[in-house]
Design a protein around this nucleic acid. Sequence first.
DNA 1: AGTGATATCTTTACGATGTAAAGATCATAA
DNA 2: TTATGATCTTTACATCGTAAAGATATCACT
Lengths: 241, 241
Amino acid sequence: MARLSKENKATRPVRAPTRRVARVAADRPASRRRANDTPYHHGDLHEALLKAAERVLERDGLAGLTLRAVAREAGVSHAAPTHHFGDLTGLLSELAAIGFRQFGLAMAAADASATAPSEKGVASAKAYVAYAQAHPGMYGLMFRSERLDHSRPSLHEASEASFAGLTRGVGASRHEQISKEQLTLDQAAAIASAWSLVHGFTMLLLDGRLKTILDRAPEGTSVETLLTAMLRLSAGRSARP
Amino acid sequence: MARLSKENKATRPVRAPTRRVARVAADRPASRRRANDTPYHHGDLHEALLKAAERVLERDGLAGLTLRAVAREAGVSHAAPTHHFGDLTGLLSELAAIGFRQFGLAMAAADASATAPSEKGVASAKAYVAYAQAHPGMYGLMFRSERLDHSRPSLHEASEASFAGLTRGVGASRHEQISKEQLTLDQAAAIASAWSLVHGFTMLLLDGRLKTILDRAPEGTSVETLLTAMLRLSAGRSARP
DNA sequence: AGTGATATCTTTACGATGTAAAGATCATAA
DNA sequence: TTATGATCTTTACATCGTAAAGATATCACT
């Protein structure tokens, strides 16, 4: 509902030069509010657009996350975002970078709150899945979207950082230090394995493909239960005496 | 190149009633070719559209797979597919069903060619990744697309069948029969684990996110090597005496 | 202070897409 | 043979991303 013809301004008069001044005075009361951190004249549109985009993503999902929808949400013209992000890929990539930072923080917090080193891996994995469940739109943007430019510095850096957190967790649960430069095949396999396991589980979960399994599992088996059982199984290979 | 304004028929005359007959005679020499299996008058458009869609998908990727592009590839008007598939979701879902059948066949073949039962799981996993590498567009359609209707009988059935193949492989490598109705928590975890591992690995691989790991692994480590090491690691938990 | 340069934002325009609706065409049943 | 209905084409429209030009406000510089 309320979806038809949002961009019809009712047969615009060919030219009306003074109308702009009045509109600006009425629409932008807080135009002079900021004075210290933002370098430009209008409001901090860059930030405002990213926040608007996050709202749109949570409300309407990945499919609803369009340049024009974000511009509407932020109350600016549909072409305004182009100037700040270049194109749709630019906006999505910056938003995904924000997501990766949130994501990395959540995993780091879980890692820090785990007491025993051997628990850190499990805690991180649970935080991984929990983040995706709490922010499915963002997770989809980060890992499913085809319009991300991973060569953008902000995105590349943020995703590398969250990856480093995962590597740390794997190292802790193996009781060994993992070099930043060189990995043994076993270490590489352990890292790839952990990441694949938790990422694959999350994707299947968000796509609803685990329902088939959960339905056949013992009465009362929840997603948490299944994940815990999986992780215990997977941890058995290194913790076995 | 050759990309601008494909659908401009050069200022069409308002009405030209006889033109159709000539065009049809010139364009459809094989119109009467089929006579046994297809119930309708024109060529077997349903099948032709699906084959055209597969070509477009392999050539231009998921982003290029549009209703109009498929219609162009098949040489029909842009609205023709609607009649056969309802909408884009319909076409994509039918094509994804074809993909799941190919996929299931590839895994079943790998399973059958493995001699020892304990090898079946590894063989299936390798076939899984190999299929995705050989048909990245199709795999993306099957597992990444947001416009699939999994309640469509053909798609639901095809994806369930390929899932059943996976379950069988897990059962074989555990040396036990897996019931179709009820699973123990351990069995459910083993199945979810295997699927998550191989699916996650494939997604990360197709997204280029494993490069970071491969670059730090010992010289000459290939995707195959890494996958094999992962599977050996993961198999250790049940094969350990 | 005034003025020109420049960054920000809006308007306008265009090609592409999905989809609906109506017209044309043809196979097949009656 | 004819009429009915399935198949395909035309036409139309809202939406999208993006480019280009116009309007507007900030900033640097004399």
